[in-house]
Amino acid sequence: MKRLLTLILDGEIEQGFDATLEIRQGDLHSPSQTRIKGRLSGNRDLLNCYRHWQQRYLSLEMLFRALSANPEQVTNSSQRGEAFAACRRAAEVLEGSLNHWLNTDLEFRSIRDKLLRSGKKFQLLLQTNNPWLRRFPWHRWDLLAEAQADVALSAIEYDCPNPLNRQPTPKGKVKILAILGQGANLNQQADQQALEELAGKAGAQITWRQEPQASELNQQLWEQGWDILFFAGHSGTSQEGQRGEIQLNQTERLTIDDLRFALKKAIGRRPRYANARGLQLAIFNSCDGLGLAYQLAAQQDLYLPQVIVMAEKVPDPVSPKFLRYFLEAYIHPGLTRGC
């Protein structure tokens, strides 16, 4: 079993962060074996590096959208090369700034040294309420990259259900509700057929819904048992990072609050919903989904074990590729429930 290391960073990017590292042998329900305190100084320059990279990345996205809309509109290959190079340079500067911050801050040394001694392939859970820290490329911290550590995000405050009250993983095929919202690039029959064949090999069954009405989505979540909810399409996050929306169809945009009661039934943690199968995972394969993750974490009575979102805008062709790679890695007919 991998060791779980929890890094709690509480503060603001300008003033700095109080840091706590907790080490457990197992999941979040296991008692903490080690707790180390430290601090990270404020770093406005790192935030500026991130914003500069994001501008270059968005410029690259707009260039490719122009190419997709009119292949003859952009014909200068040097322009495309320059856009790639500018984005790559900005990414390297951002990565270097992040590593310098985490590796040279003296008050953070005790935590960094403990991470260095934690061996290979541990799991790191970053708990923070700061929207900028959630956007930084933590997987590019050389310490974590060398250790082949898995990195996930969590809010600082959370309410986790008693593991003794968890429902067993349902038998039979894992059921996936795949919602193709406005802008989804999964509407080709060949893509869906290939993904369904792959899902069958992984012990899963996909039900597709193309740009459903909000009432239909709520009904699907309310009346049937699902193990995984998958959404592909347009989405976005508010500037403060605390609110997300999905573009369900041409006329309807939904937040997590709009789906709260249906999700509560689908998750089925409460005795009131004892007949529900129990939603285990939600995947939002859509642009800028951190606001969606924040809202799910803020709804402390939902108890959804895992959420996968995209931190930035993603090109349309990523949707089918991501689901394909996910299903290829999805070997077992169930997911381990965790919190």
Score class of each variant (00 low, 15 high):
residue 4 L to I: 04
residue 8 I to H: 05
residue 9 L to Y: 08
residue 10 D to K: 09
residue 10 D to I: 00
residue 12 E to M: 00
residue 19 A to W: 13
residue 25 Q to W: 03
residue 30 S to F: 05
residue 39 R to S: 11
residue 41 S to T: 11
residue 43 N to S: 10
residue 44 R to V: 12
residue 45 D to N: 11
residue 48 N to E: 14
residue 50 Y to H: 06
residue 54 Q to T: 14
residue 54 Q to R: 08
residue 55 Q to R: 14
residue 67 L to S: 05
residue 67 L to G: 02
residue 72 E to D: 06
residue 73 Q to T: 01
residue 76 N to A: 08
residue 79 Q to R: 02
residue 81 G to P: 11
residue 83 A to T: 10
residue 85 A to Y: 01
residue 86 A to S: 15
residue 88 R to Y: 10
residue 91 A to F: 15
residue 96 G to D: 02
residue 105 D to G: 07
residue 111 I to S: 09
residue 115 L to A: 07
residue 117 R to V: 11
residue 123 Q to S: 12
residue 126 L to C: 08
residue 134 R to E: 05
residue 137 P to F: 04
residue 139 H to W: 02
residue 142 D to I: 12
residue 148 Q to A: 06
residue 151 V to D: 10
residue 159 D to T: 10
residue 161 P to V: 04
residue 161 P to Q: 08
residue 162 N to Q: 12
residue 167 Q to I: 07
residue 178 A to C: 09
residue 180 L to V: 00
residue 187 N to H: 13
residue 188 Q to K: 15
residue 188 Q to V: 15
residue 190 A to H: 14
residue 190 A to D: 09
residue 192 Q to Y: 12
residue 192 Q to D: 03
residue 192 Q to V: 07
residue 199 A to H: 01
residue 200 G to L: 05
residue 204 A to H: 00
residue 208 W to S: 13
residue 210 Q to A: 09
residue 211 E to T: 06
residue 215 S to R: 15
residue 219 Q to T: 11
residue 237 T to D: 07
residue 244 G to Q: 13
residue 246 I to L: 07
residue 248 L to C: 11
residue 249 N to W: 12
residue 250 Q to D: 15
residue 252 E to F: 03
residue 252 E to H: 02
residue 253 R to T: 08
residue 269 R to S: 13
residue 272 R to E: 15
residue 273 Y to V: 15
residue 274 A to I: 13
residue 277 R to D: 02
residue 283 I to Y: 09
residue 285 N to A: 04
residue 288 D to H: 11
residue 289 G to I: 07
residue 291 G to C: 11
residue 291 G to Y: 14
residue 303 Y to K: 12
residue 313 K to M: 08
residue 313 K to E: 08
residue 321 K to N: 03
residue 322 F to Y: 03
residue 326 F to I: 02
residue 328 E to M: 00
residue 329 A to Q: 06
residue 333 P to F: 00
residue 333 P to M: 01
residue 335 L to I: 03
residue 339 C to D: 03
